[in-house]
Write a protein that binds this DNA or RNA. Structure first.
Lengths: 365, 365
DNA sequence: TTGAAAGCGCTAACAC
DNA sequence: GTGTTAGCGCTTTCAA
């Protein structure tokens, strides 16, 4: 590929052709009020006929110091950002805000591989979207010393933050279930580390978690369902990705437990949906035999049967707020948007004790 | 906002601090093999301690002529790209291909408003995604004279194209329904113009369509279900957006027809899903009373009940192919990916004639 | 209303 | 392995 940025002539060529200085041509493009409309027209026509592509963006950027674009950086493989409806809604909000302000939106994947992309991106500011606190990209970002805002995680001193109160929101989920009489809970968690671990979570792992948001949600659940020693309990299963399949695997393992949980607290709707499908495949009816709550309230939550009880968070607004925190300066350092529990049909009162006992008496597999 | 691109010092400052020439510092960043590891280390350390953010991207771009980024341009409001799963899957593919090649991905909205964004974007190439042939952005793009590829529409002479054979694919949908014995069809079309029109489509409108893809699909349907004068017929309803609500409105109007159609050919899954929901609200069972086929095979197609019969197109691959057409040069000018009909549960044999007759005899409303 | 001059910060040829 | 030199194409004072 040959240098595309200097395909055709320059301002100066146009200037020569018309017989004016290159300043005047520059003005013709950037400050129409600085020259006679007639001259401007001549110049634009000449430019067009020479197929001059307009002022070179790189040169302009170098000179003005502005790229007129911002970047969103995140950890996951690129496609995830589009295929996960929660991420997509957030990005939709960002995109919308950018379009309004005539700003370009650059998508950059974080992780080891792409530190270079972050270093070299032509941008005026950065949104860190839901990254683990140990991601090396964070250092690159800091080095660039651009205006930055973090969304969801990680919390970094002195860097503006936009998110919701995850702990309170997940507490509300658990409370809803508890109110319905549930006592035996299972938590299906988002990843806590970047190691791709899948399985039950011991306290040790919680301590070393890199994904703070996952932790906050777990803590919210535990605030209600109790920790060791209380009269209810919760087993925690960690999924390496927020995918339906993973939710299914989680359910598969959690439902083997004896006594069997009567309620599943899933940290995302996709995990919840996967869990529901699996439960159903095991002849366990939702919500009669098992209650499931999700998190996020993505469009699919209303599509499945039963419709999912979940926490609605204003994803799109989060995107708007991220941009305005980035550009409009001095708001509060940490902004939390409201989230609310949406009760639909995937949760119901705890099945009668008798039924639970039958489970208890089953020879364990 | 102050110029962020020249926040801290320059190569030269670092050079002075270390006592080498600025070329050497440049090499330290870009060609580690050109100097002793030890010196390199000294330089990098110095840079870090002065919090030098690395070579200025604008300056590098100006000098090298490469932006190391490509843009995707489309017509719709930005958020649509993320919320529509078909668009999102395509973008996921693009994003993936970009990540592999360490290229930035810039999202740009087309339409009148944003010609400037296209002009000023720091990019090496462009993907036009599903735009109407009269969009003014197309001219801007042409002016920029960057490598370009069109996805889905519009077909432009000498510009590489990536898509599927829409006409053949929609023909297959219609054929499937015809084979099931259907004779009275309704087509729910994607928009044909940019005027936001919603309603029945007369032949005149087909002639003036700006969205070629919509037209191709309609033609494929008509190839099978017949045009005026044949023994089957199809009414066409145009939706201004590919949204479930619109599909619902379409169904609302189409099902009022007398005789009532027994099959709906929807040009997108979202439209199909909306139609199914509406049909059901009218006590019309799908597929027993009404068959519906969609288009795209988005994830939601498998989520709804009944699962949707639709055309699967390799959206993600389309994204890959777009990037490789853009960068890897000389393939064929027009590349068509395979699409295939996926028969699920939203289509069934045409309801018995007796039942149809009862419809016919109903006093018309 | 127009033009001249001075870089913006960097990379790549080339010489040492 | 390192330094010198010459712009990349533009915008922005400032002066005419």
């Amino acid at each position: 590929m040959k240098p595309s940025l200097r395909a055709r002539g320059t301002l100066k060529d146009v200037a020569n052709a018309v017989g004016v200085s290159h300043t005047t041509v520059s003005n013709a493009f950037n400050r129409p009020d600085q020259l006679s409309p007639k001259l401007r027209e001549t110049i634009v026509a000449a430019a067009r006929s020479m197929s001059y592509p307009g002022p070179n963006p790189a040169a302009r950027m170098l000179r003005t110091g502005f790229a007129r674009a911002i970047a969103v950086v995140w950890t996951d493989p690129m496609p995830h950002a589009f295929e996960d409806q929660a991420a997509a809604s957030f990005l939709a909000g960002v995109a919308e805000a950018c379009a309004e302000r005539r700003l370009g939106l650059l998508l950059v994947q974080g992780g080891e591989s792409s530190s270079r992309s972050v270093q070299a991106a032509a941008i005026d500011g950065l949104i860190i979207y839901s990254m683990p606190k140990n991601d090396s990209t964070l250092q690159m970002v800091a080095d660039r010393a651009l205006p930055t805002v973090v969304v969801d995680q990680p919390i970094i001193p002195n860097i503006p933050f936009v998110g919701i109160n995850d702990r309170a929101a997940s507490r509300a989920c658990a409370q809803h279930l508890k109110t319905l009489g549930h006592k035996r809970f299972a938590i299906v968690s988002l990843r806590l580390g970047t190691d791709g671990y899948r399985g039950f979570v011991e306290p040790e792992r919680l301590k070393n978690a890199c994904f703070e948001l996952s932790l906050r949600r777990i803590e919210g659940y535990l605030d209600v369902v109790g920790r060791n020693g209380s009269n209810s309990f919760a087993k925690i299963w960690e999924c390496p990705h927020s995918l339906e399949e993973e939710g299914g695997i989680a359910a598969e393992n959690l439902l083997k437990l004896n006594p069997q949980p009567t309620a599943i607290l899933a940290a995302s709707d996709r995990l919840a949906i996967g869990a529901i499908e699996t439960a159903r495949r095991h002849q366990l009816r939702v919500p009669e035999g098992l209650s499931v709550v999700g998190f996020d309230d993505i469009p699919a939550a209303k599509l499945i049967t039963p419709e999912l009880t979940t926490t609605n968070q204003p994803l799109r607004e989060k995107g708007h707020l991220a941009i305005s925190s980035l550009l409009d300066g001095n708001g509060p350092l940490r902004r939390k948007l409201p989230a609310k529990l949406v009760i639909r049909h995937s949760t119901a009162v705890c099945p009668a004790e008798s039924e639970s006992h039958s489970n208890l008496r089953k020879p364990s597999g």
